[in-house]
Simulated scan of single mutants.
Amino acid sequence: MIGAVLAAPDGRVVVSLDVLVENRHFRRDWSSAADVGWRAAMQNLADIAAMGARPTSLVVGLVLPADLPARWVTGLARGMAAACAPSGVAIVGGDLSAGDEVVVAVTVHGDLEGRSPVLRSGAHPGDVLALAGAQGRSVAGMALLQAGHPRAHLDLVDSYRRPRPILAAGPAAADAGATAMLDVSDGLLRDAGRLALASGVVLDLIDPAEAFRADLAVLDGAARLLGVDPLEWVLAGGEDHGLLATFPGGADLPESFRVIGHVHAATGPEVAGRVLVHGAAAPVTARGWDHFRG
Protein backbone atom coordinates (compact mmCIF):
# COMPACT_ATOMS: atom_id res chain seq x y z
CA MET A 1 0.00 0.00 0.00
CA ILE A 2 1.15 3.53 -0.78
CA GLY A 3 0.68 5.85 2.19
CA ALA A 4 -2.28 8.23 2.29
CA VAL A 5 -2.22 11.58 4.07
CA LEU A 6 -5.54 12.52 5.69
CA ALA A 7 -6.63 15.79 7.23
CA ALA A 8 -7.83 15.65 10.85
CA PRO A 9 -9.27 19.09 11.63
CA ASP A 10 -10.66 17.89 14.96
CA GLY A 11 -7.26 16.61 16.07
CA ARG A 12 -8.76 13.18 16.78
CA VAL A 13 -9.49 10.31 14.39
CA VAL A 14 -12.05 7.55 15.00
CA VAL A 15 -10.87 4.26 13.47
CA SER A 16 -12.67 0.94 13.03
CA LEU A 17 -11.96 -2.29 11.17
CA ASP A 18 -14.22 -5.10 9.93
CA VAL A 19 -13.42 -8.24 7.97
CA LEU A 20 -15.70 -10.21 5.64
CA VAL A 21 -14.66 -13.79 4.87
CA GLU A 22 -16.19 -15.72 1.97
CA ASN A 23 -18.52 -18.55 3.05
CA ARG A 24 -18.45 -17.19 6.58
CA HIS A 25 -19.95 -13.73 6.10
CA PHE A 26 -21.09 -13.88 2.47
CA ARG A 27 -21.54 -16.27 -0.44
CA ARG A 28 -20.84 -15.34 -4.03
CA ASP A 29 -23.86 -17.35 -5.20
CA TRP A 30 -26.11 -15.25 -2.92
CA SER A 31 -24.68 -11.78 -3.52
CA SER A 32 -23.13 -9.92 -6.40
CA ALA A 33 -19.66 -8.42 -6.06
CA ALA A 34 -21.28 -5.00 -5.76
CA ASP A 35 -23.49 -6.29 -2.93
CA VAL A 36 -20.43 -7.55 -1.04
CA GLY A 37 -18.68 -4.22 -1.56
CA TRP A 38 -21.73 -2.33 -0.31
CA ARG A 39 -21.97 -4.47 2.84
CA ALA A 40 -18.25 -4.24 3.55
CA ALA A 41 -18.34 -0.46 3.36
CA MET A 42 -21.66 0.11 5.10
CA GLN A 43 -20.94 -1.98 8.19
CA ASN A 44 -17.77 0.05 8.72
CA LEU A 45 -19.48 3.38 8.14
CA ALA A 46 -22.06 2.40 10.77
CA ASP A 47 -19.27 1.75 13.31
CA ILE A 48 -18.05 5.31 12.90
CA ALA A 49 -21.55 6.79 13.07
CA ALA A 50 -22.11 4.85 16.30
CA MET A 51 -19.31 6.86 17.92
CA GLY A 52 -21.06 10.10 16.96
CA ALA A 53 -18.57 10.79 14.17
CA ARG A 54 -18.77 11.42 10.44
CA PRO A 55 -16.97 8.80 8.29
CA THR A 56 -14.35 10.31 5.98
CA SER A 57 -12.23 7.60 4.32
CA LEU A 58 -11.62 3.88 3.88
CA VAL A 59 -8.61 1.70 3.21
CA VAL A 60 -9.29 -1.79 1.87
CA GLY A 61 -7.32 -5.03 2.05
CA LEU A 62 -8.25 -7.89 -0.27
CA VAL A 63 -7.35 -11.56 -0.38
CA LEU A 64 -8.35 -12.99 -3.77
CA PRO A 65 -8.24 -16.46 -5.37
CA ALA A 66 -6.07 -16.54 -8.48
CA ASP A 67 -9.00 -17.61 -10.67
CA LEU A 68 -11.35 -14.84 -9.52
CA PRO A 69 -12.51 -12.83 -12.58
CA ALA A 70 -11.31 -9.24 -12.69
CA ARG A 71 -14.90 -8.11 -13.25
CA TRP A 72 -15.76 -9.39 -9.76
CA VAL A 73 -13.15 -7.09 -8.23
CA THR A 74 -14.35 -4.09 -10.22
CA GLY A 75 -17.90 -4.90 -9.13
CA LEU A 76 -16.76 -4.95 -5.51
CA ALA A 77 -15.21 -1.51 -5.97
CA ARG A 78 -18.41 -0.17 -7.55
CA GLY A 79 -20.47 -1.42 -4.60
CA MET A 80 -18.14 0.22 -2.11
CA ALA A 81 -18.19 3.47 -4.04
CA ALA A 82 -22.00 3.44 -4.17
CA ALA A 83 -22.22 2.97 -0.39
CA CYS A 84 -19.66 5.69 0.30
CA ALA A 85 -20.80 8.35 -2.16
CA PRO A 86 -23.81 9.74 -0.23
CA SER A 87 -21.57 10.40 2.79
CA GLY A 88 -18.72 11.86 0.75
CA VAL A 89 -16.38 9.08 1.91
CA ALA A 90 -13.26 8.37 -0.16
CA ILE A 91 -11.40 5.09 -0.62
CA VAL A 92 -7.81 6.28 -0.19
CA GLY A 93 -5.72 3.12 -0.40
CA GLY A 94 -5.38 -0.57 0.26
CA ASP A 95 -3.47 -3.77 -0.42
CA LEU A 96 -4.08 -7.22 -1.87
CA SER A 97 -2.78 -10.76 -1.73
CA ALA A 98 -3.64 -14.20 -3.09
CA GLY A 99 -5.56 -16.79 -1.09
CA ASP A 100 -8.04 -19.64 -1.32
CA GLU A 101 -11.16 -17.57 -0.55
CA VAL A 102 -12.14 -13.94 -0.86
CA VAL A 103 -11.43 -11.84 2.23
CA VAL A 104 -12.39 -8.16 2.38
CA ALA A 105 -10.86 -6.15 5.24
CA VAL A 106 -11.95 -2.52 5.52
CA THR A 107 -10.55 0.13 7.85
CA VAL A 108 -12.61 3.29 8.17
CA HIS A 109 -11.68 6.69 9.57
CA GLY A 110 -14.03 9.28 11.00
CA ASP A 111 -14.09 12.88 12.18
CA LEU A 112 -15.77 13.83 15.46
CA GLU A 113 -16.08 17.45 14.27
CA GLY A 114 -15.60 18.77 17.79
CA ARG A 115 -18.01 16.35 19.48
CA SER A 116 -17.15 14.13 22.40
CA PRO A 117 -17.13 10.48 21.31
CA VAL A 118 -20.17 8.46 22.37
CA LEU A 119 -18.88 5.28 24.01
CA ARG A 120 -20.87 2.16 24.90
CA SER A 121 -20.01 2.67 28.57
CA GLY A 122 -21.96 5.82 29.42
CA ALA A 123 -25.55 4.66 30.01
CA HIS A 124 -27.08 5.60 33.38
CA PRO A 125 -30.11 4.34 35.31
CA GLY A 126 -33.10 6.43 34.26
CA ASP A 127 -31.94 6.76 30.64
CA VAL A 128 -34.15 5.62 27.79
CA LEU A 129 -32.97 3.09 25.22
CA ALA A 130 -33.65 4.03 21.61
CA LEU A 131 -33.03 2.60 18.15
CA ALA A 132 -32.54 4.32 14.79
CA GLY A 133 -33.21 2.02 11.85
CA ALA A 134 -34.90 -1.25 10.97
CA GLN A 135 -34.53 -4.46 12.96
CA GLY A 136 -34.73 -8.09 11.82
CA ARG A 137 -34.78 -7.52 8.07
CA SER A 138 -31.22 -8.62 7.23
CA VAL A 139 -31.39 -11.90 9.12
CA ALA A 140 -34.79 -12.60 7.53
CA GLY A 141 -33.27 -12.06 4.10
CA MET A 142 -30.44 -14.44 4.93
CA ALA A 143 -32.94 -17.04 6.15
CA LEU A 144 -34.81 -16.79 2.84
CA LEU A 145 -31.57 -17.35 0.92
CA GLN A 146 -30.63 -20.30 3.14
CA ALA A 147 -34.06 -21.84 2.51
CA GLY A 148 -33.75 -21.45 -1.26
CA HIS A 149 -36.18 -18.56 -1.69
CA PRO A 150 -34.00 -15.83 -3.27
CA ARG A 151 -36.97 -14.28 -5.11
CA ALA A 152 -39.44 -14.25 -2.22
CA HIS A 153 -39.82 -11.05 -0.21
CA LEU A 154 -37.13 -9.28 -2.22
CA ASP A 155 -37.16 -6.29 0.13
CA LEU A 156 -35.83 -8.53 2.91
CA VAL A 157 -33.28 -10.25 0.69
CA ASP A 158 -32.08 -6.82 -0.41
CA SER A 159 -31.77 -5.78 3.25
CA TYR A 160 -29.35 -8.68 3.75
CA ARG A 161 -27.37 -7.90 0.63
CA ARG A 162 -27.34 -4.12 1.11
CA PRO A 163 -28.12 -2.92 4.65
CA ARG A 164 -29.06 0.74 4.90
CA PRO A 165 -28.27 2.14 8.36
CA ILE A 166 -29.19 5.76 9.05
CA LEU A 167 -25.64 7.07 9.26
CA ALA A 168 -26.65 10.66 9.98
CA ALA A 169 -28.39 9.45 13.14
CA GLY A 170 -25.04 8.91 14.85
CA PRO A 171 -23.84 12.52 14.91
CA ALA A 172 -27.43 13.63 15.55
CA ALA A 173 -27.57 11.38 18.63
CA ALA A 174 -24.28 12.78 19.90
CA ASP A 175 -25.55 16.33 19.43
CA ALA A 176 -28.74 15.39 21.31
CA GLY A 177 -26.79 14.18 24.34
CA ALA A 178 -26.66 10.41 23.79
CA THR A 179 -24.92 8.77 26.77
CA ALA A 180 -23.96 5.49 25.08
CA MET A 181 -24.25 4.05 21.58
CA LEU A 182 -23.26 1.18 19.29
CA ASP A 183 -24.54 -0.32 16.06
CA VAL A 184 -26.55 -3.55 16.03
CA SER A 185 -24.32 -5.87 14.02
CA ASP A 186 -24.47 -9.14 15.97
CA GLY A 187 -28.08 -9.07 17.18
CA LEU A 188 -30.14 -6.76 19.35
CA LEU A 189 -29.94 -8.86 22.52
CA ARG A 190 -26.20 -9.51 22.14
CA ASP A 191 -25.26 -5.92 21.35
CA ALA A 192 -27.61 -4.48 23.96
CA GLY A 193 -25.93 -6.79 26.45
CA ARG A 194 -22.53 -5.41 25.49
CA LEU A 195 -23.74 -1.86 26.07
CA ALA A 196 -25.31 -2.85 29.39
CA LEU A 197 -22.17 -4.64 30.57
CA ALA A 198 -19.84 -1.80 29.58
CA SER A 199 -22.12 0.69 31.38
CA GLY A 200 -22.70 -1.50 34.45
CA VAL A 201 -26.49 -1.39 34.06
CA VAL A 202 -29.51 -3.51 33.17
CA LEU A 203 -31.58 -2.85 30.04
CA ASP A 204 -35.30 -3.62 29.85
CA LEU A 205 -36.90 -3.65 26.40
CA ILE A 206 -40.52 -2.61 26.32
CA ASP A 207 -43.15 -4.99 24.94
CA PRO A 208 -41.82 -5.99 21.46
CA ALA A 209 -45.35 -6.03 20.07
CA GLU A 210 -45.37 -2.28 20.71
CA ALA A 211 -41.72 -1.31 20.22
CA PHE A 212 -41.26 -3.32 17.01
CA ARG A 213 -44.78 -3.33 15.63
CA ALA A 214 -43.70 -2.07 12.18
CA ASP A 215 -40.75 -4.47 11.96
CA LEU A 216 -42.90 -7.47 12.89
CA ALA A 217 -45.46 -6.50 10.26
CA VAL A 218 -42.78 -6.35 7.54
CA LEU A 219 -41.39 -9.73 8.61
CA ASP A 220 -44.72 -11.52 8.96
CA GLY A 221 -45.02 -12.93 5.45
CA ALA A 222 -41.48 -14.35 5.35
CA ALA A 223 -41.86 -15.74 8.85
CA ARG A 224 -45.02 -17.60 7.86
CA LEU A 225 -43.32 -18.92 4.72
CA LEU A 226 -40.41 -20.32 6.74
CA GLY A 227 -42.35 -21.28 9.88
CA VAL A 228 -40.31 -18.92 12.07
CA ASP A 229 -41.35 -16.67 14.93
CA PRO A 230 -40.51 -13.16 13.62
CA LEU A 231 -39.77 -12.03 17.17
CA GLU A 232 -36.62 -14.16 17.05
CA TRP A 233 -35.42 -12.22 14.01
CA VAL A 234 -36.14 -8.92 15.74
CA LEU A 235 -34.46 -9.76 19.03
CA ALA A 236 -31.56 -11.91 17.82
CA GLY A 237 -31.02 -10.69 14.26
CA GLY A 238 -28.09 -8.50 13.33
CA GLU A 239 -26.49 -6.77 10.34
CA ASP A 240 -29.22 -4.20 9.83
CA HIS A 241 -26.68 -1.96 11.58
CA GLY A 242 -29.27 0.21 13.27
CA LEU A 243 -27.90 2.53 15.93
CA LEU A 244 -28.75 1.59 19.51
CA ALA A 245 -28.34 4.50 21.93
CA THR A 246 -29.27 5.67 25.39
CA PHE A 247 -30.43 9.19 26.21
CA PRO A 248 -31.23 10.95 29.48
CA GLY A 249 -34.85 10.49 30.49
CA GLY A 250 -36.98 13.30 29.10
CA ALA A 251 -34.49 14.22 26.38
CA ASP A 252 -35.78 15.20 22.95
CA LEU A 253 -34.68 12.35 20.69
CA PRO A 254 -33.51 12.90 17.11
CA GLU A 255 -36.27 12.23 14.59
CA SER A 256 -34.86 8.88 13.44
CA PHE A 257 -34.86 7.31 16.93
CA ARG A 258 -37.70 5.46 18.65
CA VAL A 259 -37.78 4.44 22.30
CA ILE A 260 -37.50 0.65 22.74
CA GLY A 261 -36.57 0.32 26.40
CA HIS A 262 -35.23 1.75 29.64
CA VAL A 263 -32.03 1.62 31.67
CA HIS A 264 -32.08 0.37 35.26
CA ALA A 265 -29.50 0.04 38.00
CA ALA A 266 -27.84 -3.34 38.41
CA THR A 267 -29.00 -4.26 41.92
CA GLY A 268 -29.93 -7.49 43.65
CA PRO A 269 -30.47 -10.34 41.19
CA GLU A 270 -30.28 -8.06 38.16
CA VAL A 271 -26.57 -8.22 37.33
CA ALA A 272 -24.87 -5.71 35.06
CA GLY A 273 -25.13 -6.67 31.42
CA ARG A 274 -28.51 -8.35 31.66
CA VAL A 275 -31.13 -7.54 29.02
CA LEU A 276 -34.76 -8.09 29.98
CA VAL A 277 -37.74 -8.08 27.65
CA HIS A 278 -40.84 -6.51 29.19
CA GLY A 279 -39.47 -7.15 32.66
CA ALA A 280 -38.64 -10.83 32.15
CA ALA A 281 -36.10 -13.10 30.49
CA ALA A 282 -36.00 -12.84 26.71
CA PRO A 283 -38.67 -15.09 25.11
CA VAL A 284 -36.30 -16.44 22.43
CA THR A 285 -33.44 -18.94 22.63
CA ALA A 286 -31.11 -17.31 20.09
CA ARG A 287 -28.95 -14.44 21.28
CA GLY A 288 -27.31 -13.31 18.05
CA TRP A 289 -24.20 -13.91 15.98
CA ASP A 290 -21.10 -15.45 17.55
CA HIS A 291 -17.97 -14.93 15.42
CA PHE A 292 -16.55 -18.33 16.35
CA ARG A 293 -19.72 -20.40 16.64
CA GLY A 294 -21.94 -18.76 14.04
Rank of each mutant, 00 (worst) to 15 (best):
residue 9 P to Q: 09
residue 11 G to R: 15
residue 20 L to Q: 13
residue 20 L to E: 15
residue 22 E to M: 09
residue 22 E to N: 05
residue 23 N to T: 15
residue 24 R to S: 15
residue 26 F to W: 08
residue 28 R to V: 07
residue 33 A to R: 03
residue 36 V to L: 03
residue 38 W to M: 01
residue 39 R to I: 01
residue 40 A to G: 03
residue 42 M to K: 04
residue 46 A to L: 06
residue 49 A to D: 00
residue 50 A to S: 14
residue 52 G to V: 02
residue 53 A to P: 11
residue 53 A to W: 01
residue 60 V to W: 01
residue 63 V to G: 07
residue 69 P to C: 08
residue 71 R to F: 08
residue 73 V to A: 08
residue 73 V to E: 04
residue 73 V to Q: 14
residue 78 R to Q: 15
residue 91 I to K: 10
residue 106 V to A: 08
residue 130 A to E: 00
residue 131 L to T: 01
residue 135 Q to M: 12
residue 141 G to C: 09
residue 146 Q to M: 12
residue 147 A to D: 15
residue 149 H to D: 10
residue 150 P to G: 07
residue 154 L to A: 15
residue 157 V to S: 05
residue 157 V to T: 09
residue 158 D to P: 06
residue 164 R to Y: 08
residue 167 L to H: 02
residue 169 A to P: 09
residue 177 G to I: 10
residue 178 A to T: 04
residue 181 M to W: 03
residue 184 V to A: 00
residue 186 D to I: 05
residue 188 L to M: 08
residue 188 L to I: 04
residue 203 L to I: 13
residue 203 L to Q: 01
residue 205 L to D: 10
residue 209 A to I: 14
residue 212 F to K: 15
residue 213 R to P: 10
residue 217 A to K: 11
residue 219 L to M: 08
residue 222 A to W: 07
residue 222 A to N: 09
residue 225 L to F: 11
residue 225 L to W: 10
residue 227 G to S: 03
residue 239 E to N: 08
residue 241 H to I: 05
residue 242 G to R: 06
residue 244 L to F: 09
residue 247 F to V: 00
residue 255 E to M: 11
residue 261 G to V: 00
residue 262 H to E: 13
residue 267 T to P: 06
residue 271 V to E: 10
residue 274 R to S: 12
residue 284 V to C: 11
residue 284 V to D: 00
residue 290 D to T: 13
residue 291 H to V: 15
residue 292 F to W: 15
residue 294 G to R: 07
